[in-house]
Design a protein around this nucleic acid. Structure first.
Lengths: 204, 204, 204, 204
DNA sequence: CATGAATGAGTTTTCATTCAT
DNA sequence: TATGAATGAAAACTCATTCAT
């Protein structure tokens, strides 16, 4: 029952199917057949639209990152102050959709794959840079630039680490607790900055 | 030319070969043939000693964890105070051998595999619990138990996150910087605790 | 935007596309998609007009042979004597269009396919018979019939062999040299006939 | 029932199976499964020993050429004079084994493949050069060098052409007739040389 | 007339695993 | 103890072909 204009629908269905398959099995070694089955199409169609498994995988992480970016932009726009924007970045990182066990498992699989796929690594690095830069820009309004960079690095690492622990599903740190932990980290670091250099006043 | 008493040597050679193969390729999909070749034996022998690829993989992560455990015990024994022991735990986590790119890549691959292998997950959970408990015990001497747990969770997550970023090899946080960042996290958290509850005095 | 009277145009475009695809890749394993793309239509249309890949291939060699036949008739009509007609046959065989590397590659592919396709073999046999008979008829005016047959066989084989060597593109025998070689063959054979049987006089 | 030292046996069996499969079907598109089945092994074993289909195919033509070379050397050694060596080269070319329909079909398939495989082309060019050079060396003892080259080119092309016609299996030129035709070509060409330049005397 | 959508059947290739020696 | 020999099972990928529109 062929219909016109199916391509974008199929592409999306396949990318979603890939994400869910990877999330379920926690590995990129999921088969094209498995993904296709989840999307309700033949494996041949998946190849038809994406050319190869690798490209489907790339499209999949790209989609994950695009979601994250969209949410980030939205959250930043809704925040009124630098500190609020830092909180927004943290909250978005632990956004329900991103923090679901399957999504976390998929992230992990992509990170692992990045060891051997330059394209994959590139995408993940872009994401890391974007988060870092967003954090630094807003933290710089609250403390000296050097410190802002340090806090940004720490916060980003903390976020990633909390994801990783989530993947283990052993110490089931909740979304809220993860956010609280990260906020506390930022607060403590900023507080310390204020104590150690009380004379420096406000930062633009 | 079979020799007597080769078993432990072969097992070690195969585990080391597996670790280096996984580290190089960043994935557990390395082949038994590849591992066997690195160990200088036939794939059949790898099966002879380990029964299956899965079991060789389990033995490999077990070896990684055993190393870490040995180093940890040693470092803890050499530290004189609770705070020094916390530092020792941090330092061991970023120990040169563990923090080498190949080892980090291997860790990541194991975490990823843990999604679908109960045995793998179990081992990683054990390691996570051990680190957590070591941290809590020593932090509890410096702050209230609840806070100690929070700091321990944060520090452990931070360590894992710094590993993960190391795996990306994009923001090449050095070993020293990673240690400093984690120490700063602990210091800031403890300092905050002291400010917020100055009257509480010493903790056992 | 379907148009009326497109059928002959499409058929020709597809046959030409098939020939060029086969010539470029030197094999009949070119895909229908490739051929259709070159013709600027969808693979489905190629099927619509030809029913199957096999039939398109048959139509393609048929077209090649039709061209050759047309050229042959034309060249024979323009020649004034039996010997000139033999030369005409030789020249036509090495006609620029036929002797282009891509066309030679296509010929070779068809010959190869003839091993397993009766239809293909039939067409090539027809061509071979026609050339043979044309040669014999004209050579018989210059020598005894038996010898004429022998020379025709030799000349035809020589032509095919020169094609084959052209396909290799290693000893790049030019069109002119190929013609000269074949002419020399005929001359030598005829000369020999005259020496060995000088008394026989003219042949009809 | 594994035995030691099977490798050379399997390699030979696979190469022979490939040759017969290609000969039967007249195409290199025979499947590895088909070849393996003929050799009595699994497709996986064929890959194990040859790495890929392409390499098995290369090994196959290599074997064909090696046979031819061996026969050639043998025949040349058994011939007492330059003219006898030319005859030997002709006879070897039409040697029973090489001239069997399946072998001829295989040759044709390889020539066809040479259009797109540099390795294949290289091997066929080597063979062509060797035959040419063998012919020239011996013909040069019977006529001027320039003419020797011309005759060699013609004879080689004639041989190839007779093969090609054999592949068609339409004008079933026998082995003997093919040899006779080629010998006649050489004789006629040499005779002509003697008539046209009677003063030149013997050639070294 | 023309095509985008879709797939079944098949092909190469890989790899963990087994087993006789 | 050790391995060369061998394979079943599965995976990615290809392609001629069909069909509703």
């Amino acid at each position: 029952m062929p219909k016109l204009g199916m391509e974008p629908l199929r592409r999306k269905a396949l990318v979603d199917a890939a994400l869910s398959a990877i999330g379920d099995q926690g590995t990129l070694t999921v088969t094209m057949s498995d993904i296709a089955r989840r999307a309700g199409v033949s494996p041949a169609l998946a190849h038809h639209y994406f050319g190869s498994k690798d490209e489907l995988l790339i499209a999949t992480i790209r989609s994950l990152l695009a979601d994250l970016r969209r949410d980030t932009i939205h959250a930043l726009n809704a925040a009124a102050s630098p500190r609020a924007r830092v909180s927004a970045l943290i909250r978005v990182s632990f956004h329900a959709g991103q923090f679901a066990p399957e999504t976390v498992a998929a992230w992990l699989a992509f990170y692992s794959q990045a060891q051997s796929s330059e394209a994959m690594r590139h995408l993940l690095v872009l994401y890391a840079r974007r988060l870092h830069s967003n954090l630094v820009v807003n933290l710089a309004a609250l403390c000296p630039p050097d410190l802002a960079r340090g806090i940004a690095e720490g916060a980003a690492a903390l976020i990633d680490g909390l994801y990783l622990r989530r993947a283990l599903a052993a110490a089931p740190l909740s979304r809220e607790r993860s956010i609280a932990l990260t906020e506390a980290y930022v607060d403590a670091a900023l507080a310390r900055a204020r104590i150690e250099m009380p004379a420096e006043g406000r930062h633009a």
